[in-house]
Design a protein around this nucleic acid. Structure first.
Lengths: 192, 192
DNA sequence: GAAATTTCTTATCATAGATCAATTGGCGCT
DNA sequence: AGCGCCAATTGATCTATGATAAGAAATTTC
């Protein structure tokens, strides 16, 4: 499974075999069955996590017990709660697997020390956070400007992989609408 | 006006007088009158910008001509379109001043070279982007989970300075509701 | 491969918030 | 003080989406 991470890294940055050995030596793997939690609300998140295989979601449960999906992550995506990681406070989110999955984990201390020793890795992390921020801004824009239909079309076109693999009710949750509304919207689009 | 930026930086990181001289030598200042644009849709954004004085907004205009406010920025906040800055593509956003303002600008090339020479500045930038990302995630969560009233209360409590200074219709736009709805919500809250 | 479970669709009704339209209030300007 | 301008409030509808419910389709389980 480390090969997936290695392939990902070597596609983005230049590292030596020695560097990879160092990374692998602090990597932990966690297999998750469908529905299994990687993190639960109240836990403190202490890792950097990379999805080697499968599909996961980050979500929050509101006062009425309704789940709201913040993010999805599949192979070659990072996942976790950066706020909890940064502050050391318990997370308000849950993360669980939507499919059987394998996640690579490197704890905060080890990861920080890797970043110090491997500047390209450090740069990569900053690039990813930067991109995540930009994507978040665009998602906020979608919430502000788009109708339910426009939000779905934007999602489908921007993340076709997720649109194919994620159950429809969860796409609805991610887009901030009910499954019924999404179902209606899909029918409307199909009719055109 | 550089003193504002210097005070901001010295509160967060350790730099020498020489470092500050270097920063100041590449800093440009732009005075903006109320309603004046700092950037318009279609422009390519090539700066890092820090608000020394005043209040600005980043917003988008949708197909129907409705403005949607993505962000506010006041003294000691950074502003700009990081997507346009990173990609070199024209921005889809507008930035203008809600009050007479002064903005410090450092163009991309100069800023990048400053970051290379001054590691603490580099770290600070990454910290800010990281925090911005976390704030964006929380805002997304608010869009997913909160009613109009909850969104307003969250905003008012988290950003009391903006809640005081920003015209109400613009707060409504930022929160993704109409000015009428916000007005009614405030009345309801007051009655309790 | 049939039963059980879950997901998706469809229909009807309910509602938060939008839209449209005045009215009121605040503030600078002459 | 009075006029003009813009922001905020209020009221009267309207509408997109939510809530509920029930059946159809798909998927899982044994």
């Amino acid at each position: 499974m480390f090969s997936v991470f290695r392939a990902y890294l070597s596609d983005k940055i230049q590292l030596s075999d020695e560097d990879y050995r160092m990374i692998e030596s602090v990597s932990m793997f966690k297999k998750l069955r469908k529905r299994q939690y990687l993190m639960q609300e109240g836990d403190i998140w202490r890792n950097n996590a990379f999805v080697c295989q499968g599909l996961l979601r980050t979500y929050r449960v509101d006062d009425k017990g309704v789940e709201h999906i913040i993010n999805f992550a599949m192979e070659n995506w990072w996942i976790g709660d950066r706020e909890s990681l940064a502050t050391g406070n318990p997370s308000g989110f849950n993360i669980d697997a939507l499919e059987d999955s394998v996640v690579l984990l490197i704890n905060k201390e080890n990861f920080d020390s890797l970043c110090k020793k491997l500047p390209p890795l450090n740069d990569l992390v900053h690039t990813i956070i930067h991109r995540s921020f930009i994507a978040s801004q665009n998602r906020i824009n979608a919430f502000l400007s788009y109708t339910a239909e426009e939000k779905y079309i934007y999602f489908r076109d921007k993340y076709p992989d997720f649109a194919m693999r994620v159950p429809q009710q969860m796409i609805a949750s991610y887009l901030g609408m009910t499954p019924e509304t999404l179902s209606r919207i899909k029918r409307q689009i199909a009719r055109k």
